[in-house]
């Protein structure tokens, strides 16, 4: 097997093992119903995490996506309340996400500021803006929203593929194509692998950085739209902590936090792993949701440790040569 597929194989293995464990422990677990719900419930996180995957592969980090999801939700609710069609509102919000991300990327590049601190400021800004728009949960009432949540494709067995899951899978497909079959995607990997070399090899650093964060903004805004449609409401606290879930999904998906290495499709499985842990805890009934965070944290630790050892041996090798 090729080196680049080892991490993703590990991720898929963990996912299958967890799924089978659930099946062994609880009745009715091994079903398309559970699988369909898993995809539907985690769709918005995974969508947002796809954008984070690009950011992390480029060697950056984005901490503002949770706030973006909340912001998109409340503004969408407001716009629909003012008579906008939900789709128009969604398009406006996605355009906003792209613009916002682009500006963030531009600031990161021209000012040479660490991404984590600038996106931290973004976290404040967007969450504060949520509260400025609305303090309470605002329902989104529109026939389209009802149709969106009602529409689903039946799966063999008793499960369904909901519309949000379908959007997520399409977004994933787009992400895979961008990452692996466009020059921009290749540039993202080059930037994360070695910024100086990439610049010497002719990668346009500023344009690529702006595009990376714009893409991140696109995906987090899309995640916000899906979350708003899924819950049929805009809530100013929505998406709190989702940035961490997204980063966890990316890391569990086998992407190196040091940048340069990772697969977009891994993020799907990474997101599903955390979702699966929550589902198992749900099925158990005796465990609390506290377990989910702890187990995700533990898995995160193990994955980072595994990455560390992989890189460690490679560096040791290089050092003994150089």
């Amino acid at each position: 097997m090729k080196e680049r597929y080892i991490p993703i194989a590990g991720t898929i293995f963990v996912f299958i093992a967890l799924f089978l464990t659930g099946g062994a422990l609880y009745k009715h677990f091994l079903s398309t119903l559970v699988l369909g719900d898993l995809l539907a419930d985690n769709a918005f996180i995974i969508i947002a995490a796809i954008g984070t995957t690009f950011v992390i592969i480029s060697g950056g980090i984005d901490l503002s996506i949770g706030s973006m999801i909340g912001f998109v939700g409340v503004v969408m609710a407001g716009l629909v309340g003012h008579g906008w069609h939900p789709l128009a509102a969604a398009a406006a919000m996605i355009a906003f996400g792209v613009l916002y991300g682009g500006i963030v990327g531009w600031i990161i590049d021209i000012c040479d500021i660490q991404p984590f601190i600038i996106t931290l400021a973004g976290l404040f800004l967007l969450r504060g803006s949520c509260f400025m728009v609305s303090l309470d949960s605002v329902p989104i009432k529109h026939s389209f929203v009802d149709a969106f949540s009602a529409w689903r494709i039946p799966l063999p067995g008793s499960g369904f593929l909901t519309s949000s899951a379908i959007v997520m899978l399409l977004a994933l497909l787009a992400g895979v194509v961008i990452a692996h079959f466009t020059r921009f995607g290749t540039n993202v990997y080059a930037l994360g692998g070695d910024r100086t070399s990439a610049a010497l090899m002719g990668v346009p650093i500023r344009r690529t950085t702006v595009m990376i964060y714009a893409l991140g903004g696109f995906y987090s805004a899309l995640g916000g739209v899906i979350y708003a449609l899924y819950t049929a409401s805009g809530y100013p606290l929505a998406g709190s902590g989702v940035e961490l879930d997204a980063i966890a999904a990316v890391v569990l998906g086998g992407t190196l936090l040091t940048g340069g290495v990772g697969l977009v499709v891994g993020t799907l499985f990474g997101g599903l792993i955390s979702g699966l842990i929550a589902t198992i805890i749900d099925f158990d009934g005796t465990l609390t949701s506290a377990w989910a965070r702890v187990v995700v944290g533990l898995l995160l630790f193990l994955f980072i440790l595994a990455q560390r050892t992989l890189i460690g041996t490679r560096n040791a090798l290089r050092q003994s040569i150089g």
Partner: peptide, 26 residues
Amino acid sequence: LLDIQPIVATLILMVSGRGIAQMINL
């Protein structure tokens, strides 16, 4: 000791710490 970048290393406790607190309450 493990030489993990600080953002990443402390992220682990940031993610799971509140869960640990919930479990202590149990």
